[in-house]
């Protein structure tokens, strides 16, 4: 255990932060399915397995439904919002702080804007920002992990030590420092979170690379004179896609909490953007008199994070990438 000042234990933490602890889900428990049950079943296609997972996991179905709804809401925000102009930021003095009613289903905020429309518009940054964070983190982290695992030696050592250093920070704190020094904005928050997130993917892909390095097909490619970059692109990265996908889906939820949280403390989206975290902060001063201004955007965050976590659990269940850990 030589690299675990933040290492082994850090990975453990990450595993839990995403949601599912040890793949203890549904039918894997002795009480339900006798051991070896799966071995006897005929091999099934990915779709059949997916259906089986969904059948015994109603929570996953709920999660998938919510995520689909979230994507639809983000995509068609101007069509769905009852007051698109308010959703985009226009204030209206005459309707300031009105309670939920027929006209404004979830009430209006300090500047008279329809809370429902703002939530609908807020789905865009809530969904897109975390996706970009995770994509950036994968784009930086995955190739480095493949290089580290394939090359070994001092290259591996150097890359992984740098990873360890980044993992020695509580990730939100590092991101906050970067944003504070760069000036608060959603763009900077996204960059900052990606900077503190990439080492997880480096570790993940390095694990895959190490497990594949001496597999026959990689040895064969090397014997045929394939260059290291080619082996990386053709063999290591394609084989990393499944574990990356599982990890990424678990991370999206956590990153939604981070981006909206940064907005809440003033280090993310800035007014007048429609951002759920910002809406909660904006409604804080009115909490006593106008509970709806903070409550509903928070509910939106909670449901989104919850559903991404449930989907991530189900994906992990489906692909069961325990071997990579």
């Amino acid at each position: 255990m030589k690299r675990d000042s933040s290492g082994v234990t850090g990975a453990g933490w990450r595993m839990f932060a995403g949601g599912l602890a040890t793949g203890q889900t549904g039918g894997r428990e002795p009480a339900e399915a006798p051991p070896g049950h799966d071995d006897l079943a005929p091999p099934r296609s990915a779709w059949q397995r997916a259906l089986a997972v969904l059948k015994r996991d109603p929570l996953a179905v709920f999660g998938i439904g919510c995520v689909a709804l979230l994507i639809a809401v983000a995509a068609f925000a101007p069509k769905l919002a009852p007051y698109p102009a308010m959703g985009a930021g226009r204030s209206s003095v005459s309707t300031r702080v009105s309670a939920p009613s027929k006209e404004f289903v979830l009430g209006t905020d300090r500047l008279g804007r329809d809370v429902l429309s703002r939530i609908i518009y807020g789905a865009r940054p809530a969904l897109i920002a975390p996706l970009i964070v995770v994509l950036l983190a994968v784009a930086i982290g995955a190739p480095l992990g493949a290089i580290a695992g394939l090359m070994g030696g001092w290259v591996d050592e150097a890359i992984m030590r740098v990873c360890d250093l980044f993992l020695a920070f509580p990730s939100l704190l590092l991101a906050m420092a970067i944003v504070a020094l760069q000036g608060p904005s959603l763009t900077n928050a996204v960059i900052a979170l990606a900077v503190s997130w990439w080492p997880w993917y480096t570790r993940l892909v390095r694990g895959v690379a190490l497990s594949l390095r001496h597999q026959a097909f990689v040895e064969a490619a090397r014997a045929l004179g394939a260059s290291a970059p080619k082996i990386m692109l053709r063999h290591i990265l394609p084989n990393s896609i499944t574990p990356i996908l599982v990890q990424a889906s678990l991370d999206v939820g956590t990153v939604i909490l981070a981006t909206t949280g940064l907005a809440f403390i003033g280090l993310g989206s800035q007014p007048p953007a429609a951002d759920w975290g910002l809406m909660i902060e904006d409604g804080r001063a009115l909490l006593r008199t106008a509970w709806w201004t903070s409550t509903f955007p928070g509910l939106a965050i909670f449901l989104s994070v919850l559903s991404f976590n449930l989907v991530g659990d189900a994906l992990r269940d489906l692909f069961d990438p325990k071997e990579y850990r």
Binding site: L59, F264, E281, W291
Partner: peptide, 22 residues
């Protein structure tokens, strides 16, 4: 356990805090 923990990790602290305060 699954429901407890998935709700726990999905609740934004800054929202839960405000709800409890309210």
């Amino acid at each position: 356990v699954r429901v407890t923990s998935v709700i726990g990790v999905s609740l934004p602290a800054f929202w839960l805090g405000l709800l409890l305060q309210l």
